[in-house]
């Protein structure tokens, strides 16, 4: 007669479960502290649903005839997105090459490239917009500059990561033919990162369409300018028409980018 041996199984050891419970407790404390430190005026929160219904009532029906003002501003919005994407592509390419571990000429150069990438990415496009509106005055130029600055780091980062992931064998084969550095890059590196460059560019264009519709809020051109002025004048039916147009354009942009990306890669 052999005793039945039970196989006891527990997902976490006593120490592990203790750790998990303490982390959950800390998150709970953080939540309580955050809600108490933020100044919440509860009557306003309670009133919100009523306000929302009121706003929607004032927005309806959307002012369809306002379309004649929206179309030119929307075209400007799309052009801002396209131009800033092209500029960002051109500027990000050398930064990506200098930023990649395996193509940078020197660690110091790489560090400088990294600073550019991080700076570009850490500042929001609306902040870039505010800065460039000071430089160029309000309008599309400031918008293009702002979105270029923001896209630059994004694209440089993704492309330089793909440079770091290339198959080194192909590079070796081109070096073996006696090609110099430039031609090794042209044949050994560039074909391998081309899908990433194209994919990133289209993806960024898609993002920039969305961003360029808000940067007008700080005066940097596009549909956002029309949106702020309509809101300031309490023309809620115009506002709803603008929101619908933005929705349609963003949707169309997403469709275009998805289709092109599928074709290219």
């Amino acid at each position: 007669m052999t005793a039945v041996q039970e196989n006891i199984w527990k997902r976490f050891s006593r120490k592990e479960s203790l750790e998990r419970y303490s982390i959950e407790f800390i998150v709970l404390l953080l939540f309580i502290w955050a809600t108490r430190s933020v100044d919440i005026y509860w009557p306003f929160v309670a009133d919100a649903p009523h306000q929302a219904v009121d706003l929607v009532k004032r927005m309806l029906p959307p002012n369809v005839s306002f379309i004649k003002d929206i179309v030119p501003a929307m075209i400007e919005t799309i052009n801002i997105a396209t131009l800033s994407t092209i500029f960002a592509l051109i500027l990000s390419f050398p930064i990506a090459v200098l930023n990649a571990r395996n193509t940078t000429p020197h660690p110091v150069v790489q560090a400088i490239a990294r600073v550019i990438v991080v700076t570009s990415r850490s500042v929001n496009e609306l902040v870039w917009g505010l800065i460039f509106v000071v430089f160029f005055g309000p309008g599309a130029v400031a918008g293009i500059a702002a979105l270029t600055m923001r896209s630059l780091g994004f694209m440089a980062k993704l492309v330089s990561e793909s440079i770091e992931e290339i198959d080194h064998g192909q590079v070796e084969a081109i070096r073996a033919t006696g090609a110099n550095g430039g031609k090794v890059f042209l044949f050994g590196v560039l074909p391998q990162i081309m899908p990433t460059i194209m994919g990133t560019t289209i993806f960024r264009w898609d993002i920039n369409i969305r961003q360029s519709s808000v940067i007008g809020l700080v005066g940097a051109g596009g549909i956002g300018i029309l949106l702020t002025s309509s809101m300031n004048l309490f023309k809620w039916q115009n506002v709803s028409m603008i929101l619908i147009s933005i929705f349609v354009v963003v949707l169309a942009g997403e469709y275009v980018s998805a289709t092109v990306r599928k074709k290219l890669i």
Partner: peptide, 25 residues
């Protein structure tokens, strides 16, 4: 001239471009 274990062709380029890459020097 060097011939490799994993061929090391430029995968995304055509056969002709790969061949002519031998004359890059």
């Amino acid at each position: 001239g060097m011939i490799f274990q994993e061929y090391n062709l430029i995968e995304r380029l055509t056969v002709m471009e790969n061949v002519l890459s031998g004359r890059l020097g």
